[in-house]
Design a protein around this nucleic acid. Structure first.
Length: 264
DNA sequence: ATGTCAACTATGAGTTGA
């Protein structure tokens, strides 16, 4: 089963791009971030026409996440628990039935957190990461195949940036950010891409500005975290980098994994 | 060179967020 995460950076601006990619890549389940639309304006008909079920958690103008799936959703939950005052749409969870039992997948869009001296933005990022850790700890107790996929806005290690020194003052590469990400991993997750390669120049995002793509000035911030039960079925990971060279691209590219699971 | 882009407000051009 092929599972992919992709920050689409505006699903309405990118619908042609998305349907072309769905046809080419043929994923079973897709976690989208930054759909930048209300649920009732999501272009679901074009996606359903390709055989996908669609569940969204959108908001006006920015943020927003979705899950597209060839498998029927058994359950859907919107929003990350832990702060009832948080109105930003950054988290959706779906549960599916497979031949090996339940498969639980979350599509998450972790706060950017810049600038770090703002009195709200970086603290919001860190508190969101604490909420995510608590949620993950609880879900791991279920001992299910669990995939936590999305735009983490975290550069885990210096090797995950072409020019790590450029990111020292950035929320994506702060010691507190990296430490929170390691805490999450250390609950027992396998980070899929780094489990299969230690190569440098393994990036998932290239800024639109300053010719970052042409210069390969990239960072790796889109990740898939696997519970032990998912990691035991994990066979491959790939970054679909060619999509960044398409017309009107997102600044992120799809990151895919294969799990040895079949729809029930 | 903060060099780009999407969506908002508002109906041409500025703001926000990334």
């Amino acid at each position: 089963m092929k599972i992919v995460t992709w920050n689409i950076n505006g699903v309405r601006a990118r619908i042609g791009n998305l349907t072309h990619w769905l046809t080419e890549s043929a994923p079973d389940i897709v976690c989208l971030q930054e759909i930048k639309t209300l649920d009732d304006q999501f272009p679901r008909a074009e996606i359903e026409a390709l055989g996908y079920n669609v569940e969204t958690h959108g908001q006006k103008g920015f943020n927003g996440v979705a899950i597209l799936s060839k498998l029927r959703f058994d359950e859907v939950t919107r929003g990350l628990p832990g702060d009832d005052s948080d109105e930003q749409a950054r988290f959706i969870e779906g549960v599916f039935s497979t031949d090996k039992g339940a498969l639980r997948i979350a599509s998450l869009y972790l706060p950017n957190g810049n600038p770090i001296d703002d009195d709200k933005k970086f603290p919001y990022k860190l508190s969101w990461m604490e909420r995510l850790e608590r949620w993950a700890q609880e879900r791991l107790r279920l001992e299910e195949a669990l995939v936590l996929a999305g735009d983490y806005n975290v550069i885990p290690e210096p090797i995950d940036a072409r020019f790590p020194e450029n990111w020292l003052g950035d929320a994506l590469f702060q010691p507190q950010t990296r430490q929170a990400f390691r805490r999450l991993l250390n609950l027992g997750f396998t980070e899929a891409v780094r489990a299969v390669t230690d190569k440098p120049d393994t990036y998932t995002f290239w800024d639109y500005q300053a010719g970052a793509w042409q210069k390969n000035n990239g960072i790796r911030i889109d990740h898939l975290l696997l519970s032990p039960e998912a990691a035991n079925r994990f066979s491959a990971a790939s970054i679909e980098k060619h999509v960044r060279a398409w017309e009107k691209p997102s600044d992120h590219v799809p990151v895919a994994i294969d799990l040895a699971l079949q729809p029930a």
